[in-house]
């Protein structure tokens, strides 16, 4: 069947210096379970970087193609609820759309290449591929025809670097280096104080802190630190949220009063997502301390941290 519906034209998008560019590997988006381990490779762009390249249109040998014009566009969009079965209904929020014509209406007789360039494109968001939401950037080449257009997408990945941690709304304090201190407890049962060196971390950072046990009547089996990444999208009633987390055991056994347990978690080795927030979609990170007692009950305290990407 594919023979009949085969596109009459091959479109190839080659970004400038693509081979030498840094790439990221992202788990395959397809829900096909066999393909889960597969990874997609995407070239990486930064904010403000120009995106340029060459579009090559190849016509099948000995055939010609009539078209109403060739257009290239650079699109950034948020795709929510990608997992929803109804592909069409998928709300897409495009936040970036630049386009340029490559070629006026005419007829393609043989293969032809068109260079294109978007200068200093401002990219506001990180690329992201989550369970419910994708933030994606791509170059879209459209060959307009009388019948169906021939379209080719070329995805690339965008990473935003902050030299300074952002001052997001959630952190009211202006002093970012101030350690986070929390004092929690269950009356007459457990009372701990914990402290992280700061509330904002770059992705290669190390979370350092300590937990101080003021009172323990609990038979603690072990204690974990989990780093929870939560993506939220949609508006209140139909809000969708999903979390992924890293579990990291930091204590084994039951401490006594006065014991201090060190926390040290290297973030660099994990595939984390920096915080981001726009319209109906946000990604937040939480650091959660979980105490599991000998009867398997879990006690936890969650506190939000901000992750950001920093150029190293």
């Amino acid at each position: 069947m594919s023979l009949f519906f085969k596109s009459p034209i091959d479109i190839e998008v080659l970004l400038d210096g693509e081979e030498s560019r840094k790439h990221v590997e992202v788990a395959n988006a397809s829900n096909n379970s066999t393909a889960k381990t597969l990874k997609d490779r995407f070239p990486v762009y930064e904010d403000g970087e120009s995106v340029s390249g060459i579009v090559t249109l190849r016509v099948k040998e000995g055939r010609k193609l009539e078209h109403l014009g060739v257009k290239v566009s650079l699109i950034g969009s948020v795709d929510i609820s990608k997992s929803s079965s109804d592909y069409k209904k998928r709300p897409v929020d495009t936040f970036l759309s630049l386009s340029a014509d490559l070629c006026p209406q005419g007829e393609l007789m043989h293969s032809q290449s068109f260079p294109f360039s978007f200068k200093d494109v401002e990219k506001r968001y990180d690329s992201y591929r989550g369970k419910n939401v994708d933030v994606s950037y791509y170059v879209k080449v459209t060959v307009l025809r009388k019948s169906t257009d021939v379209v080719k997408f070329k995805r690339f990945w965008c990473l935003l670097y902050n030299s300074e941690p952002p001052a997001p709304a959630l952190s009211k304090s202006s002093d970012d280096a101030k350690p986070v201190k929390l004092d929690i407890g269950i009356e007459n049962c457990l009372h701990i104080e914990f402290e992280y060196s700061k509330s904002q971390y770059s992705l290669k950072d190390v979370i350092v802190g300590r937990i101080y046990f003021l009172l323990t009547r609990l038979k603690v089996k072990h204690m974990e630190l989990s780093l929870v990444t939560r993506e939220t999208c949609g508006l209140e009633p139909n809000q969708l949220s999903d979390t992924t987390s890293i579990r990291y055991e930091i204590m084994d056994g039951s401490p006594v009063k006065g014991e201090t347990i060190p926390i040290r978690l290297f973030l660099g080795g994990y595939d984390l997502t920096p915080n981001s927030n726009f319209n109906h979609f946000s990604i937040r990170n939480y650091l959660s301390l979980v105490i599991i007692d000998e009867d398997g009950r879990r006690y936890f305290k969650q506190s939000e941290i901000v992750l950001y990407r920093k150029r190293n």
């Binding site: 603690v220 930091i250 204590m251 084994d252 056994g253 039951s254 401490p255 006594v256 014991e259 201090t260 347990i261 060190p262 040290r264």
Partner: peptide, 13 residues
């Protein structure tokens, strides 16, 4: 030595 504090179980510690 500092990190060893994380193991509070007597035998294992």
């Amino acid at each position: 030595i500092e990190m060893c504090k994380g193991v509070q179980n007597p035998i294992r510690g």
